[in-house]
């Protein structure tokens, strides 16, 4: 499977895990990896997100809440 296919396969179910807000394709030591973006760290996320998915390393990355925005009064 390509990394895009792996992402497509898992993203919807992973994003149902509380605190998971996104996924993407990144690099890990020069090799393609899957990134899972999180609002916060949690044991549930660590438990439910595999370290490897269909042969691709999965890396957790804490982004915090992602917002569209502008200074606004």
């Amino acid at each position: 499977m390509t990394i895009s296919e792996v992402l497509k396969k898992h993203t919807d179910s992973w994003m149902k895990i509380p605190g998971v807000i996104g996924t993407g394709e990144g690099e890990w030591h020069g090799k393609p990896c899957i990134k899972v973006f999180t609002k916060h760290n949690s044991k549930i996320i660590k438990k439910k997100i595999p370290k490897v998915a269909d042969g691709y390393k999965v890396v957790l990355e804490k982004t915090g809440k992602v917002e569209a925005g502008k200074p606004h009064l």
Binding site: L7, I21, T23, G24, E25, G26, F37, V66, A68
Partner: peptide, 13 residues
């Protein structure tokens, strides 16, 4: 750029 093909939930307030 550190990731592409990203799916992400974005808050609009």
């Amino acid at each position: 750029i550190s990731a592409i093909n990203v799916t992400i939930s974005v808050s609009y307030g």
